[in-house]
Amino acid sequence: MNSFDIKLVAGEAGMYNSVKWVHMVENEEISSFLDGGEIVFTTGIGIFEAKDFDLLSLVKENIQNGASGMVVNVGPYIPEISETVIAYCNRLGFPLFVVPWEVKMARIIKVFCLYILEAEKYEMEISEALEKALHFPKQDNIYAPVLEKYGFHPDNKIQISVLAGEFKIDEKTTLVDELLQKINYITYQLDGKVTISKSDKHYILFSANMDEAKIHVFSNRLTEFLNSKLKDPEIHWAIGSEIKQLHDIHKSYLRVKNLLKINQRAMIFNPITDDHNLGAYELLMEYADKTGAKEYINNMIEPLFEYDRMNNTDLCVVLSLYLESNGRVNDVAQKLFVHRNTINYKIKKIENLLSCDLSDFFVRLNLAVAFMMKAVL
């Protein structure tokens, strides 16, 4: 693009707006035909011929109709960009470019179209390759060359992360585009590479050139963005370890899904974001399919869950907090906003129901393992 002497004069904050196509727009009527996501080009001839329509009005129309940015051919019809227009575009994060009159707009449009088609090809090929890597690991002769072609090579610190939570993003809303733009912007700032695949219940992020520290910066910034856009979203992250071989993508994905399940279902201890911090869960996952696992849960804590279901009580919550707090009654009372005597009464009730002594460390340990195993199953 530098060969065309194209220059950004306003709206730098919107530089990562998604661009679907290009359109020549010279007046308000043509602007109304925009489908959303276009870069619009204008020579200003429509503005020159109109009495009550100026560049600011055209910018406003284009923004209202979903344009991603605008290129102005400065010359006899629009000799310069006013400070008012620049300020308006900066305020709304609407990229505004200028090119000299001598530059032929048709050539710039052609280059833009080629870029867009290449980007669409990339998205299609990388998405198909990632889907195969996630679900058909033995087809590495198909997906590996594509992933490596686009920079997702084991030498480039590739990882699988999963974003999930109690939030729904309607695919027809602009929030989807905003989310993708934010991901692209954060990735660019971190000098990394991320591609996304969406399942029914979560987003799968496949990253390259991003170490553990950058991955956490990425997840924190994206969480902040979602919190600013959605009302009380319950967000969960699960981040896999660095993948050494492309055929291990499937294995890493399964581990990350298990980690996500633990974070969503665990009643005790803080969430575990990284799969290399699984600790005891690592062992419990190995026994998740064993019949003895369910029997252990049934013997240890299932009577308490059954009692809560039948009596609409919260004894399981009280016990989980009691275990998490290492038996400190005051901590549990503060978390539940009740008097410590209420907790003491419920602890006695739990001991009677489970026929145990919660002052015994090994009893608490066995119960904690049962809660952890229930999260894994």
Rank of each mutant, 00 (worst) to 15 (best):
Ile109Ser: 09
Lys7Asn: 11
Ile158Leu: 04
Lys132Pro: 00
Asp177Ile: 03
Gln189Ala: 12
Gly14Thr: 02
Ile126Met: 06
Glu125Pro: 09
Lys193Arg: 15
Lys149Phe: 07
Ala13Thr: 04
Glu61Gly: 13
Asp177Lys: 10
Arg265Tyr: 15
Leu321Asn: 13
Gln189Pro: 01
His236Gln: 05
Ile215Tyr: 12
Asn141Thr: 09
Arg328Gln: 06
Ala13Lys: 15
Cys316Gly: 12
Asn344Tyr: 14
Phe41Arg: 00
Trp237Asn: 11
Leu319Val: 00
Glu123His: 14
Asp331Trp: 07
His339Phe: 10
Leu34His: 02
Ile109Tyr: 12
Asn341Asp: 06
Asp211Ala: 05
Ile204Gln: 10
Gln245Ala: 06
Val74Trp: 11
Glu128Cys: 04
Val71Thr: 04
Thr42Gln: 11
Pro233Arg: 13
Asn220Gly: 12
Thr223His: 13
Leu246Arg: 01
Glu38Asn: 07
Asn366Ile: 01
Asn90Tyr: 11
Val99Lys: 07
Leu259Met: 08
Leu323Lys: 04
Phe362His: 14
Val256Glu: 01
Ala87His: 15
Leu147Pro: 00
Phe94Arg: 04
Lys244Arg: 15
Asn2His: 12
Ile169Pro: 05
Lys251Pro: 02
Leu205Ala: 10
Lys335Cys: 03
Cys89His: 02
Ile6Pro: 01
Asn312His: 15
Lys214Phe: 10
Ile347Leu: 02
Pro154Val: 01
Phe136Met: 03
Gln159Ile: 01
Ser241Asp: 10
Ala288Pro: 03
Val22Gln: 02
Ala50Arg: 14
Glu102Phe: 10
Val40Cys: 14
Asn298Tyr: 12
Gly75His: 01
Tyr150Trp: 05
Lys138Asp: 06
Arg309Ser: 11
Ser18His: 11
Asn220Glu: 09
Ala208Glu: 03
Asp155Met: 08
Phe269Leu: 07
Met285Thr: 07
Ala213Tyr: 14
Val256Cys: 03
Phe337Tyr: 14
Leu55Cys: 06
Ile243Phe: 00
Val176Tyr: 11
Phe136Arg: 10
Pro76Tyr: 12
Phe53Gln: 07
Ile215Thr: 09
Trp101Ala: 09
Leu180Val: 07
Tyr77Thr: 09
Ala164Met: 02
Arg328Ser: 08
Lys229Ile: 00
Glu234Val: 13
Ile108Leu: 09
Ile249Gly: 05
Leu319Cys: 05
Trp21Asn: 09
Asp54Met: 04
Phe218Met: 03
Val71Arg: 08
Cys89Lys: 00
Ala164His: 08
Ile215Glu: 10
Gly66Tyr: 06
Lys20Thr: 07
Ser241Gln: 11
Ala106Cys: 05
Met1Ile: 03
Arg328Phe: 06
Asp200Arg: 14
Ser207Cys: 09
Ile160Glu: 06
Asp314Tyr: 13
Leu365Ser: 13
Asn298Ser: 13
Asn312Leu: 06
Pro145Met: 02
Arg340Glu: 11
Val99Gln: 05
Lys104Asn: 15
Tyr88Lys: 08
